[in-house]
Design a protein around this nucleic acid. Structure first.
Lengths: 162, 162
DNA sequence: GTTAATCCCTACTCGATAGATAGGAAAACT
DNA sequence: AGTTTTCCTATCTATCGAGTAGGGATTAAC
């Protein structure tokens, strides 16, 4: 009965918002300032600062210091996957560490991984989550917020009502 | 950089272990006792007690009190889905409450759900997770732990290496 | 070179929750 | 009655997420 809800942390939500903001900015405009991002996204400024530092350390964004500084994407938005962002803020996509591809760790009390039923099914889940989050780019995601979801340029992902 | 890992709680892991244990028990054998389940699964006894009570309140298991009492499944293992179990212990499957089918709640700061890019992609994830967890039965899962994964009786789910 | 705007780093608070434990009450069988 | 089991209530502790605070470092502009 423990329905605390949301497994996407507030951190993660803010990070996605910020990245979408950066992706939506005109390509020739300069770096976007923290205050601007925070203001538009209803994000506590100081908190966002810390998140952006993490994204920078991970190589997803580039910072420009000094007057008129700010942040911009390190790569084109078509080459940044949503999974990349979420891993920074929320850790591995896998529900159990023993099926994580990038952060593998044994489960403490697991006698034999090969015969662990939990591991088997969680691997399936991990697989499916990965096919969405690691194959959907930031560009595709940002385009989703434009009202009409009829953007045929994205061939990988098909929308489905929920 | 927050990789605490596992989004499947310990509670959830214990619940799955216990349910698999119950599913694996001989159908004519009596109810399984907490101590037996706890012993075989390396689960703290008192903790497991609380979990089983939750599973009972949710109608997944039936308890028998008194001497030679214990627990048994409320329905055949083929009719209990893994998602049913995980929702009891870990809450909604969705990563954000606004795409949860059974526990829908608005996101606090969401201006317009129709144009929320985060919501769109999280709905896709929710969809994929659901197709695994709500279509894989406890019986199928328990059969996975038998070493050979060649069980053609389960037609819904195909195994894939990870 | 001074200024002003920005990024960056360290530390801290507060509240919630996961995990676990303890003791006993209620029920059912012998 | 007595034993064995589930069941209920309360409690504890450590960790973590979320957010705050303040100042130091860096650089563009003037």
């Amino acid at each position: 009965m423990r329905h605390s809800g949301a497994m996407l942390s507030q951190r993660g939500r803010y990070a996605l918002k910020a990245m979408i903001h950066l992706a939506a900015a005109a390509p020739d405009s300069g770096p976007q300032q923290i205050s601007a991002i925070a203001g538009q996204g209803n994000i506590p400024r100081k908190f966002l600062e810390a998140i952006l530092v993490d994204l920078k350390k991970a190589g997803l964004v580039i910072s420009v210091r000094g007057q008129r500084g700010g942040y911009r994407l390190a790569r084109p938005a078509t080459e940044i996957m949503i999974g990349d962002i979420m891993r920074i803020t929320d850790g591995p996509l896998a529900l159990v560490p023993c099926v994580s591809k990038l952060f593998y760790r044994r489960c403490l009390d697991c006698a034999d991984e090969a015969t662990c039923a939990i591991r088997h099914i969680m691997a399936l889940v991990r697989e499916e989550v990965g096919t969405v989050l690691d194959k959907t780019s930031l560009a595709q995601t940002a385009a989703l917020g434009l009202g009409s979801d009829a953007d045929p340029s994205a061939d990988t992902v098909l929308l489905s009502a929920s």
